[in-house]
Amino acid sequence: MKAPAFKEFTNQLDTVTTDGFIFEWQVNDPRERIVGLLIDGKVVGLVKFSREFSSRYNRIESIEVMKEYQGQGYGAMLMAFVMMDSFSNDGFEGFVALTSKSDGTENFYLHLGAKQRTKQLMIFDTEASQYVVSKYLPNGGIFK
Rank of each mutant, 00 (worst) to 15 (best):
Y74H: 07
E127P: 02
D29P: 07
V16E: 11
T99F: 07
R59G: 00
K101R: 03
G41V: 13
G113M: 12
I22E: 02
P30N: 05
K2S: 15
Q120G: 09
Q116S: 10
R33S: 12
R33P: 05
N107Y: 11
H111A: 05
Q26F: 11
E93C: 12
V96Y: 00
A3D: 06
S55A: 08
K135P: 02
S129Q: 00
K119M: 13
I34R: 00
G140P: 12
E8W: 09
D40E: 15
S50E: 13
E68K: 09
V96M: 08
E93G: 06
E61D: 14
F21M: 00
P4F: 09
T126V: 10
G75K: 01
F6M: 11
E52G: 03
F124G: 00
V133F: 11
F49M: 14
K101L: 15
S100I: 02
D90K: 04
M77Y: 08
I123W: 13
V27Y: 01
F108L: 08
T17A: 12
K144Q: 14
S62Y: 04
M83W: 03
Q72H: 06
D19S: 14
H111R: 08
I123S: 05
Y69E: 11
F108K: 00
Y69S: 02
S86V: 14
D85W: 01
F21V: 08
G41F: 06
G94V: 15
N28E: 15
S102A: 12
D85E: 15
A5D: 11
P30F: 10
V132G: 03
N11L: 14
M79S: 10
G71C: 12
I39Y: 02
A114I: 14
F143K: 07
Q130E: 15
V43C: 05
P4L: 06
K144M: 04
P30C: 08
G71E: 08
G45N: 06
Q26E: 10
T17F: 10
Y109M: 07
G75R: 00
I22M: 14
V133C: 15
K2L: 15
G104D: 11
Q12L: 13
R56C: 12
I142N: 07
F6K: 00
P30K: 03
N58L: 05
T18L: 13
T17K: 05
A114C: 07
R56W: 01
G94R: 03
T105P: 00
R31D: 11
G91W: 12
F23I: 03
E24Q: 09
L38P: 09
L46G: 01
T118G: 03
L121M: 12
D29W: 04
K48E: 04
S129I: 10
D90W: 08
K48T: 03
Y109C: 01
E32K: 01
G140Q: 06
V65P: 10
G75M: 01
G45E: 09
T15P: 01
S88E: 13
V35C: 06
R33E: 14
P4D: 10
K7Q: 15
V96R: 00
M77R: 06
D85N: 06
I60S: 00
L121H: 04
F21C: 05
R117K: 13
K119I: 11
S62H: 04
A114H: 04
K2Q: 14
E127T: 11
D125C: 07
N28F: 10
E24F: 13
M1F: 05
G41K: 04
N107H: 07
M66P: 08
N89A: 15
